[in-house]
Simulated scan of single mutants.
Amino acid sequence: MTAQRATRPTALVTGASAGIGQEFARQLAARGHDLVLVARDRARLEALAAELTSRYAVSAEVLVADLSDRGALQAVADRVADPDRPVDVLVNNAGYGQRRSFLRNDVEVEEAAFDVLTRAVLVLSHAAGVAMRERGRGRIVNVSSVAGFIASGSYSAAKAWVTTFSEGLASELAGSGVTVTALCPGFTNTEFQQRAGISKPGPDFMWLDPARLVSDCLDDVGKGRVLSVPGLQYKAVVGLLRVLPRSLVRSRARLVRR
């Protein structure tokens, strides 16, 4: 192993097989990070690992895991906390699309979504926060959503939790050398909508480019920002949502989807 490889930082990205997670993996590799790629689809992960290894001369480890399974989640947490193979950047990106509203959905599906969207973020952030604080450096990125600022079912509630949790963890880690950033995108041109079985809503100007989104987020991470809201349109939306009466936000929430 060369000295260069031994000192290269490592980033672990969940939900890395597609969409925003895949874009994080590509851009972190381009910035000189080795990767640990986490998702359920082994074939996609191995194809991405081969691409990143060939294009950027980094190492790319594949870790297949369904984060709604507690045993699989613990295996990822153990990898995050491994002192012999430190993770310098954690990106909690794994998603869970919902086709139905809360009361029309099976509660087992809601529980699985809850585990992926909130419990996995909690468990992996704890593993990373403890390990990174001991080393005096690290970055945690939790992918939330503009949906967290509205009131639109359990997905919206989960993302509100992710944002508030990230803010609290950032305060707890202040001065430690470890930063926490909640990324709050709006509509983004990925396969998320297709895989969730959701039709594409909203006008074209409200849709974000994933490459620009991730680039802007990584710049915000470098600046130590706790909240990263990509796009002027969504900065305006979030600013408005924070001052509007909650009764009005609730009445309009049915019109808004991530």
Score class of each variant (00 low, 15 high):
195 R>H: 15
146 V>L: 02
123 V>R: 11
91 V>L: 10
221 V>C: 09
244 L>W: 08
29 A>Q: 03
189 N>H: 13
247 S>D: 11
150 I>E: 00
234 Y>R: 00
35 L>A: 07
11 A>E: 02
10 T>M: 10
92 N>S: 09
9 P>R: 12
175 G>W: 07
101 S>E: 13
46 E>I: 00
23 E>L: 05
29 A>T: 06
107 V>R: 05
200 K>W: 06
220 D>M: 01
125 S>K: 05
187 F>A: 14
230 P>A: 03
187 F>C: 00
112 A>L: 11
205 F>Q: 07
184 C>Q: 12
94 A>F: 03
179 T>Y: 08
125 S>G: 10
186 G>A: 09
210 P>V: 08
249 V>N: 00
155 Y>W: 04
255 L>V: 02
121 V>P: 02
51 E>V: 06
177 G>S: 07
248 L>D: 03
164 T>C: 06
80 V>D: 00
247 S>T: 15
131 A>F: 06
3 A>N: 15
222 G>H: 07
195 R>C: 08
58 V>G: 07
95 G>H: 03
102 F>N: 07
110 E>C: 09
84 D>F: 11
236 A>Q: 08
141 V>A: 06
52 L>N: 01
57 A>E: 14
145 S>P: 07
88 D>I: 04
17 S>Y: 02
159 K>F: 00
13 V>Q: 04
140 I>Y: 02
118 T>C: 14
85 R>K: 13
241 L>V: 11
140 I>K: 02
74 Q>D: 14
107 V>K: 00
158 A>C: 14
81 A>N: 13
71 G>T: 11
144 S>Y: 04
180 V>D: 01
170 A>E: 01
248 L>P: 00
201 P>K: 14
121 V>T: 14
241 L>C: 09
40 R>C: 03
120 A>G: 06
252 R>M: 15
14 T>L: 06
75 A>C: 06
160 A>L: 14
125 S>W: 01
51 E>Q: 12
243 V>C: 03
236 A>I: 15
251 S>W: 05
144 S>K: 05
243 V>A: 03
212 R>V: 15
5 R>D: 14
12 L>E: 11
60 A>E: 06
7 T>K: 10
162 V>K: 06
104 R>D: 15
12 L>Y: 08
87 V>H: 06
216 D>R: 13
245 P>M: 07
66 D>Q: 04
154 S>P: 14
231 G>V: 05
104 R>T: 15
24 F>C: 00
87 V>E: 06
79 R>G: 02
97 G>W: 07
33 H>G: 01
199 S>H: 04
5 R>N: 15
81 A>C: 12
112 A>K: 14
171 S>V: 12
189 N>S: 12
154 S>V: 15
7 T>R: 13
222 G>S: 04
184 C>E: 14
2 T>G: 14
133 R>N: 12
92 N>V: 04
82 D>V: 01
49 A>Q: 03
